[in-house]
Structures are given as C-alpha cells and as structure tokens.
C-alpha cells in the first residue's frame, strides 16, 4: 500500500476539523487547530524563535525561559504580555514562518507523515491558514521564484558574488545587500538564511534575483572536464584567502558536475564570470595565462611565490 501523500493527508485532516501536529519525518511539523494550519516548522527554515533571536528582540535564553514558563500553547501570549513584540508583529512573524516552512514541507517527500492528535505548538495559535489557501500560496510562491530566475541550479550551492558587476550601477534590495556582504563563497542560501535570521524563501528569491541580474558566479563552467586538475601539491595553497576559500571553490566545482543541464544564459554568465571573477583556486585551466592567482601582499601569497620560484628553479 502506498503511503498517503502529505497533501492528501492534510486535506483529510482539514475536512475532519483536526487539532494536533503532523510530523513529516525529521523535515518538520505542521500544526493544525480545528482544521486550519496555525503553524509550521521545517528543518531548513528559521522558526519564530530563530527570527526573534536574530532580530535582537529577545535572547535565545529568554525564549527558552518563556517556553518553560508558559507551557504548551501560551508562549505567544506571554511574549506579547512581556512586551517582547506586539500582537500584530507576533501574527506577522507566525504567518511568515509558517508560509516559509510550508513552502519546503509541502512537496514530495520520502518521509511518512504522522499525526499526533491534540499536540499544540508552544507559541499557541495566532494566525490561521486554510489548507487550500496554504497550497495556493505555496504554488504562487513557486511561480514567483520561477519568474525571477527559472533555474534551481544555484538554490543549494554556495553563494559566490562576481568580482565585478556586469554594469556600471547596481540596484540592490536591503536583503540582497545583506546576502552579498555575508557571502563567503562557502555558505549556501540555507546557511545564509540561518545566519541572518531571514526567512528561507526570501533568501532564495533574492539569490535568484541576483543570479538573474548577473551578480552571482555560476558554477557551470564551459570548459568542464577539458583540462586536467593541477597537481595536488601546487593546487593546495593557491588561494590568497587561505584554505577556506579553496575548499569552498572545490565544493562548487564538485557540485557543478551534478547539474549538467544548464541553460545557455547560465553558461554565458559562467563564461563571463570565469575570466576574472572566480576565486583563484577554482580555475581549472592549469597553467594558462588566465589562471594565475590574484596576488596581495598577504604572507601566504609571498610564501606561495617563493614556492613557485623554487619549483621553477628546480625545473631548470
């Protein structure tokens, strides 16, 4: 017997006016209150607790304390009474976190959903979505994401801004600015969402918009697999930024091989990006003139140059 899909199960629970928690494996939980969804949490999206802690309104310890004091279902009211946030802010916070989590929970999953009757989230119910309304909103958000940039290729890869923007002026939203400032060529959109305390969907949308504007380096390189990797000994210290940059770049390269179906636009973009903008460790043209690492006065660079000189002298 095939397991019921989460959509079908949720629709049934809504029709039955159920109250309780629907757990989807380790991925997350949807909370229902008399047949309507009152909250959702997901492993990859920040919950209300994370959003509040990141906003600086209340420390993580304060949230744990409130959770213990309030008991099940009373946490939100307690936070409002204590003046941590207002009623409207709590509602908007719950609404945002629920939509964010539902967007990633309500898609095909291998986990078998389990319903636990009567279980409530500690915050309580502060905003309600009909199940059909939630499905509709998730579909709309998906469409919006597609409109911004129709490829999921960058969704799970480290965010790597291009070194030089494609135009003389760039207009950014405040979230896009935050992302570019926080991007370290290693953090994926999910990492950045957690670090910045921003909803995952908003981060994903911003990343796709940045990609559409040509501001992100694409992992798809046109010369994929044509040139051999440089010898291990010379490749390792090749980034000015040190080991962290190198490992981030190699991760990008490794992941890029798994997504060969890139669009032409992306390949073009990748071509542009590769000329000067990739971290030095990720260029794979071996000893070609374009593959020289960018050099600063950094001690590790000086060390690298000395090693290069020694190696060249040894060749003579």
């Amino acid at each position: 017997m095939a397991a019921p899909t989460i959509d079908a199960l949720l629709t049934d629970l809504a029709e039955g006016g159920a109250t309780g928690a629907l757990r989807v494996g380790k991925e997350g939980t949807l909370f229902l209150d008399r047949g309507r969804v009152s909250y959702a949490e997901c492993a990859v999206t920040p919950g209300v607790e994370d959003l509040l802690a990141a906003s600086g309104r209340i420390a993580a310890g304060g949230i744990r304390g409130a959770r213990q004091t309030a008991g099940p279902g009373g946490g939100g009211d307690l936070l409002v009474r204590r003046g941590v946030l207002s009623r409207g802010e709590l509602q908007f916070c719950v609404l945002g976190a629920t939509l964010d989590a539902a967007f990633f929970l309500l898609r095909p999953s291998s986990a078998r959903p389990r319903f636990k009757d009567g279980e409530a989230h500690w915050l309580g119910s502060h905003w309600f979505f009909t199940v059909s309304g939630l499905f509709r909103e998730c579909a709309r958000r998906r469409a919006r994401l597609e409109r911004a940039w129709p490829s999921p290729a960058l969704d799970a890869l480290p965010v790597v801004p291009v070194r030089r923007p494609p135009g003389a002026r760039v207009v950014l939203t405040s979230l896009q600015w935050e992302l570019l400032v926080a991007a370290d060529a290693q953090a994926t959109p999910a990492d950045l969402a957690r670090r910045l305390g921003r909803p995952m969907y908003g981060v994903l949308l911003a990343v796709r918009e940045l990609a559409a504007a040509g501001l992100l380096a694409s992992p798809d390189e046109p010369a994929d697999g044509e040139s051999p990797d440089p010898p291990a000994g010379s490749a390792a210290p090749a980034t000015p930024a040190g080991a962290s940059g190198a490992s981030g770049a190699s991760e990008t390269v490794a992941l890029a091989r798994r997504t060969p179906g890139a669009t032409k636009a992306q390949r073009d973009r990748a071509g542009q990006a590769n000329q000067a903008d990739r971290p030095a460790g990720s260029t794979r043209q071996g000893a070609g003139p374009g593959a020289l690492p960018s050099v600063t006065g950094d001690a590790s660079d000086v060390e690298l140059l000395i090693r290069l000189r020694d190696a060249l002298e040894a060749l003579r």
Partner: peptide, 29 residues
Amino acid sequence: MIGIEECLSEAMSIPGAVGAVLVDHTSGM
C-alpha cells in the same frame, strides 16, 4: 503594531476609505 485585522479595520475607518489590502511584500501575498 496592533493585530493585523485591527490594522485593516483601522485603515478602513479613515474618512473616504473604500478598500484596503495588507500585502506581504516579499511574496506578494
């Protein structure tokens, strides 16, 4: 900020108001 529904009725109580909608700007919902 007062509750979301209160925000809406507060906006609709402004003289001459004939319609109001609160939009989540990130998603356009």
